[in-house]
Protein backbone atom coordinates (compact mmCIF):
# COMPACT_ATOMS: atom_id res chain seq x y z
CA UNK A 1 0.00 0.00 0.00
CA UNK A 2 1.26 3.45 -0.87
CA UNK A 3 2.17 5.39 2.21
CA UNK A 4 1.06 8.97 2.39
CA UNK A 5 4.04 11.24 1.87
CA UNK A 6 5.20 12.86 5.05
CA UNK A 7 8.26 15.03 4.52
CA UNK A 8 11.20 14.31 6.75
CA UNK A 9 12.32 17.52 8.28
CA UNK A 10 15.46 18.14 10.26
CA UNK A 11 15.08 21.23 12.37
CA UNK A 12 17.94 23.19 13.87
CA UNK A 13 16.54 25.06 16.82
CA UNK A 14 18.22 27.94 18.61
CA UNK A 15 18.40 27.15 22.29
CA UNK A 16 17.17 30.64 23.25
CA UNK A 17 14.07 30.94 21.11
CA UNK A 18 12.81 28.28 18.72
CA UNK A 19 13.90 25.39 20.95
CA UNK A 20 11.79 26.99 23.68
CA UNK A 21 9.05 27.40 21.11
CA UNK A 22 9.16 23.68 20.33
CA UNK A 23 8.88 23.00 24.07
CA UNK A 24 5.91 25.30 24.24
CA UNK A 25 4.22 23.43 21.39
CA UNK A 26 4.59 20.31 23.52
CA UNK A 27 3.34 21.98 26.68
CA UNK A 28 0.29 23.07 24.66
CA UNK A 29 -0.02 19.52 23.34
CA UNK A 30 0.04 20.79 19.77
CA UNK A 31 0.39 17.66 17.64
CA UNK A 32 2.73 17.46 14.64
CA UNK A 33 4.20 14.54 12.68
CA UNK A 34 7.00 12.50 14.23
CA UNK A 35 9.01 13.03 11.06
CA UNK A 36 10.17 16.38 12.37
CA UNK A 37 13.39 15.87 14.28
CA UNK A 38 14.81 18.66 16.45
CA UNK A 39 18.50 19.38 16.89
CA UNK A 40 19.43 21.96 19.50
CA UNK A 41 22.08 24.54 18.62
CA UNK A 42 23.46 27.37 20.71
CA UNK A 43 22.29 29.91 18.14
CA UNK A 44 20.84 29.67 14.65
CA UNK A 45 24.05 31.29 13.43
CA UNK A 46 25.87 28.13 14.55
CA UNK A 47 24.31 26.28 11.61
CA UNK A 48 27.08 25.74 9.10
CA UNK A 49 25.88 25.34 5.50
CA UNK A 50 27.69 21.98 5.61
CA UNK A 51 25.09 20.79 8.15
CA UNK A 52 22.37 21.37 5.60
CA UNK A 53 24.21 19.46 2.88
CA UNK A 54 24.93 16.68 5.33
CA UNK A 55 21.27 16.61 6.32
CA UNK A 56 20.10 16.29 2.72
CA UNK A 57 22.65 13.54 2.08
CA UNK A 58 21.18 11.66 5.00
CA UNK A 59 17.81 11.82 3.26
CA UNK A 60 16.01 14.79 4.75
CA UNK A 61 13.26 16.28 2.57
CA UNK A 62 13.48 19.63 4.20
CA UNK A 63 15.55 21.48 6.76
CA UNK A 64 14.23 24.12 9.12
CA UNK A 65 16.55 26.59 10.79
CA UNK A 66 14.69 28.28 13.62
CA UNK A 67 16.20 31.41 15.13
Amino acid sequence: MEKEFSPKILSFLCKWCSYTGADLAGINRLQYPTSILPIKVMCSSRVDPVFLIKGYFRGADGILVGG
Binding site: A22, D23, A25, G26, I27, R29, L30, Q31, Y32, P33, T34, L37, P38, K40
Partner: peptide, 24 residues
Amino acid sequence: NIRDQCSWAHMNEPEKATEKSTDL
Protein backbone atom coordinates in the same frame (compact mmCIF):
# COMPACT_ATOMS: atom_id res chain seq x y z
CA ASN B 1 14.14 15.87 25.01
CA ILE B 2 11.59 13.06 24.74
CA ARG B 3 8.74 14.76 26.59
CA ASP B 4 8.12 18.34 25.45
CA GLN B 5 9.36 17.60 21.94
CA CYS B 6 8.17 14.01 21.62
CA SER B 7 5.62 12.34 23.89
CA TRP B 8 3.57 15.52 24.30
CA ALA B 9 3.73 16.37 20.60
CA HIS B 10 2.87 12.85 19.35
CA MET B 11 0.32 11.68 21.89
CA ASN B 12 -1.61 9.55 19.40
CA GLU B 13 1.34 7.82 17.78
CA PRO B 14 2.96 5.75 20.53
CA GLU B 15 5.00 3.53 18.21
CA LYS B 16 6.42 6.34 16.14
CA ALA B 17 7.03 8.39 19.28
CA THR B 18 8.99 5.47 20.71
CA GLU B 19 11.08 5.25 17.53
CA LYS B 20 11.68 8.99 17.66
CA SER B 21 12.69 8.78 21.32
CA THR B 22 15.21 6.10 20.44
CA ASP B 23 16.58 8.34 17.73
CA LEU B 24 16.81 11.32 20.05
